[in-house]
Design a protein around this nucleic acid. Structure first.
Length: 835
DNA sequence: TGATCCCGCCAACGT
DNA sequence: ACGTTGGCGGGATCA
């Protein structure tokens, strides 16, 4: 079969049954000579050029291109070069040229990342397929995952609306929440553990019953999780829900957002997605298929620069995996720095799905996991509504297609890129320009000087650079005590190393609650990221010395890092010290803790952590009322909409919010998605936004005040009125996001990108004052630059111990002295390497 | 080899 | 009945 294809590609007429007998490159319906296809100049050229060593050449070219941060102009410039390179490449229609990834790039290039509400970009599958010269089928693959991210939405048959990345933040937030609710983190852990066990003891996992129970729970949840909330919409579109690429895509993304080192290996993802990887009844073929799908998804996500391929090197060998490169998903805003445009767009977006969304939400209590999920009739109803809307919307716009394409020319970069011949993906990846471009649009004054670096935008960078800082993963620490998971009252655990203590809330009813979804929700309310981030901050603050050491060590440990740092803009160096929580430090203090934490996590999924000083008894949470929640909701939305004015607490709220939701209103109809996209909230946003703005501005010019915090908390019902919560690093930081627009935007971005805290929020040094606050905003080293090419993460390393030290390793005795009931993760060396 | 993943058959849908 | 979507997995490529 394939051979035939190739023949076709090679332009030979032998091709299959091409009715038309057209000398097409693709069996599809393309026609050559299409003016729109500069990058596929091709078949002819290919033919002409036989080929020497096209591949090599092309690659080299690619490299070059990659290296230099291509600018729009450059891209254009390159175009020509490419044509040549193209020719070469064409000679050998490498499979890569047809890769989904490349295709996706082309696809994305046609639309602006952040389309203004003005340009109504519509996507016509036919059109696109034709222009890109691919079968429609392929387009579906792309569109499907884009849909999962709400970057596009289906308007009607053959017709999609392009939303760009405007919704990304919200979507990601939603996904993260769902992911948390699904306890993906634990699941991942569990799977890993199992794999590990397998590695060593052939007899398999029967060891302790411990895992079993957890497993079962998870599984049960898993099976229902398929439609966390967002899927709803998608699912309704076509009932092939379950296995839908869309759903898979979302889940996949969730895994990243939830997992601590934001790295997910394919096999783990596949297992989780399959749901029941319970007994090793891993259907080989099923698994395989899943993996295949994941590749498809991964390709698209990679094109979106949300993830990037890496390899995990374990004892077992290399495992394909992907690392999250997208924006860190904070409970609140972030990334959506496009105030106005974003707002408008999001509104449009909400307009588009919200009705249905909301409707469905109301009809089906978000979680709807069990039984009733969505009754057909209801779905119908919802659908109807949606359809009506569609009709209304699509009708008038339909003819616009052309305009859209035309418009493309207008819109700077992206389009241009589109013109670029099939270039190496990598090069295209440089598309971060788009991001940059956008940034530019958003007047971002203040930090401009600092921000020149595009780090803001998730983007691949100079390959060669090695990250100075440790992978976020290592930084993560958490003082947790696995013991007594059933206690009801919070336990404050002093963190020996950092001196920071944590309050752990153990939910009483946990045990049985596991099965019930609502309770589970609160189990992992706090995203690791936050926790980590907090911790890091604290440690930094409290033990500046340690930090410094860390720095030094880092420098020492990783010469490359220092080098990289130099390469980086000056600004970087300044911040580097505080910014980087060193590996060494992390390793030591963390390892043990981490291990502990893991155990705790997997063991007792009901642990909730709060930084000390910010204890929130569950009981109090429980009095959150629907009303209050809605407020909260608004609050949450606010920041998103108005990037600039997030309420300081936003960061916190979401967490608590979910808890509240979970605790008080099990069947609460507000699902994560709802929260973020619901029209109501959005509508309210503006208003709230103002208030937020006022409060933050008023409260403290630049620095968030605890009063604001308190206010919010009270408002939300987290704390009773009158009670004052002292400002603490965590909260205090959050406000940062609500700083002056520009500053904030930049800072947030930076924060998000902070290499060390990639997976967490980057908290500026504790004693926050205006001056240091600002300094803390300094742009972190470009993510890429910092990211080590090869990182060895010893997740389970014991304090100070070398990789070899394996106290907990099950290797030796299978059980590794783990007490029954304790879920342990064997130590193992993980190496993350880029491709 | 194993990792990737293109390709396109064909079923589930929509109209 | 036909066109649109999109599971699925064989088997070619790539590394």
């Amino acid at each position: 079969k394939t051979p035939l294809k190739q023949a076709a590609t090679s332009n030979s007429v032998l091709t299959e049954i091409q009715p038309d007998g057209q000398p097409l490159t693709t069996p599809t319906k393309p026609k050559e000579g299409l003016p729109a296809e500069p990058w596929t100049p091709t078949s002819n050229l290919k033919m002409l050029i036989s080929a020497a060593s096209p591949e090599i050449r092309s690659r080299e070219q690619r490299r070059e291109l990659l290296n230099n941060p291509n600018e729009v102009l450059q891209a254009k410039h390159n175009l020509q070069e490419h044509l040549l390179g193209e020719e070469y490449e064409k000679s050998h229609p490498s499979r890569k040229e047809k890769s989904l990834g490349l295709l996706c790039h082309k696809f994305l290039a046609r639309y602006p990342d952040y389309p203004s509400s003005a340009d109504n970009s519509y996507i016509s599958l036919d059109e696109v397929a034709e222009e890109l010269k691919v079968e429609r089928r392929r387009i579906y693959d792309i569109v499907n995952v884009l849909e999962s991210l709400h970057m596009v939405s289906r308007l009607a048959k053959n017709r999609y609306a392009w939303h760009g990345r405007h919704n990304l933040p919200k979507t990601l937030q939603a996904l993260k929440k769902v992911g948390e609710n699904n306890k993906y983190m634990q699941q991942i852990q569990l799977i890993k553990r199992r794999e590990y066990e397998h590695e060593f003891d052939l007899d398999g996992d029967s060891k302790e019953g411990m895992p079993k129970s957890i497993v079962s729970n998870k599984d049960s949840e898993m099976s229902f999780v398929e439609l966390p909330g967002m899927e709803f919409r998608a699912a309704s579109v076509n009932s092939r829900k379950d296995k839908s690429l869309r759903v898979m895509s979302q889940k996949f993304v969730m895994l990243f957002l939830v997992s601590t080192p934001q790295i997910v290996s394919l096999d783990v993802a596949a297992k989780i997605l399959i749901g029941e990887e319970q007994l090793e009844d891993l259907d080989k073929s099923k698994f395989k298929t899943k993996i295949r799908r994941l590749y498809d998804i991964a390709n698209v996500l990679s094109s979106l620069q949300l993830i990037k391929k890496v390899h995990l090197t374990e004892e077992r060998g290399r495992k394909p995996a992907f690392k999250w490169m997208g924006p860190d998903v904070l409970p609140n805003t972030q990334d959506t720095k496009l105030e106005t445009s974003s707002t408008t767009c999001s509104q449009a977006f909400s307009e588009y799905i919200s009705p249905k969304e909301q409707c469905s939400k109301n009809l089906f209590p978000s979680r709807g996991k069990q039984s009733f999920t969505r009754h057909p009739s209801l779905i119908k109803l919802v659908k109807t509504i949606e359809n009506d809307r569609r009709k209304i919307q699509s009708a008038p716009t339909s003819p616009v297609k052309r305009s859209a394409s035309t418009d493309q020319n207008l819109s700077a970069f992206p389009r241009e890129m589109a013109q670029v011949p099939a270039i190496a993906k990598h090069q295209l990846e440089g598309q971060s320009k788009k991001e940059k471009e956008n940034k530019m649009k958003l007047s971002r004054p203040a930090l401009e000087s600092h921000l020149p670096l595009p780090e803001v935008a998730p983007r691949p960078e100079p390959r060669g650079s090695t990250g100075p800082c440790q992978p976020a993963a290592l930084t993560q620490t958490l003082g947790v005590c696995p013991s007594g998971h059933t206690s009801v009252s919070p336990v404050i655990l002093p963190h020996p190393q950092t001196g920071v203590s944590y309050a752990i809330y153990l939910q009483p009813s946990q045990a049985h609650a596991v099965t019930t979804y609502s309770p589970s929700v609160m189990l992992q309310p706090l995203p690791c990221a936050n926790i980590t981030g907090i911790k890091s901050v604290n440690s930094k603050v409290l033990n500046p010395i340690t930090t410094e050491e860390g720095d030094n060590q880092i420098a020492t440990d990783d010469p490359t890092k220092s080098v990289t740092a130099k390469e980086r803009p000056p600004t970087t160096s300044e911040t580097s010290p505080q910014r980087c929580l060193k590996r060494s430090q992390a390793l030591q203090e963390i390892s043990s803790i981490k291990r502990c934490r893991r155990d705790a996590e997997s063991l007792d999924t009901h642990l909730t952590f709060f930084p000390s000083g910010y204890l929130i008894p569950l009981t109090q949470c429980s009095h959150g009322s629907k009303a209050s929640f809605s407020d909260k909701e608004k609050a949450e939305v606010c920041p998103v909409q108005h990037t600039a004015y997030g309420s300081p607490i936003t960061g916190v709220i979401p967490v608590t919010g979910s808890e509240l939701k979970a605790v008080n209103i099990p069947a609460f109809h507000i699902t994560p998605l709802n929260i973020m996209l619901s029209p109501t909230s959005i509508a309210a946003a503006p208003v709230l936004g103002n208030s937020c703005l006022n409060s933050s501005n008023t409260g403290s010019a630049q620095i968030p005040s605890s009063s604001v915090l308190n206010f919010t908390l009270q408002h939300i019902g987290l704390i009773p009125a009158g009670v004052q919560v002292p400002a603490n690093p965590f909260l205090q930081h959050m406000p940062a996001s609500s700083q002056a627009e520009n500053i904030i935007h930049s800072s947030e971005k930076m924060i998000c990108k902070h290499p060390e805290s990639r997976n967490h929020i980057y908290f500026p040094p504790f004693p926050l004052n205006e001056s240091n606050f600002l300094s803390s905003l300094q742009p972190p080293v470009p993510k890429e630059a910092q990211e080590p090419q090869k990182v060895t993460e010893n997740f389970f390393r014991t304090p100070g111990g070398p990789n070899t030290e394996t106290p907990l390793s099950a290797k030796s005795d299978g059980t590794a002295g783990t007490s029954p009931g304790t879920l342990y993760i064997p130590q193992r060396k993980l190496e993350v390497s880029e491709d």
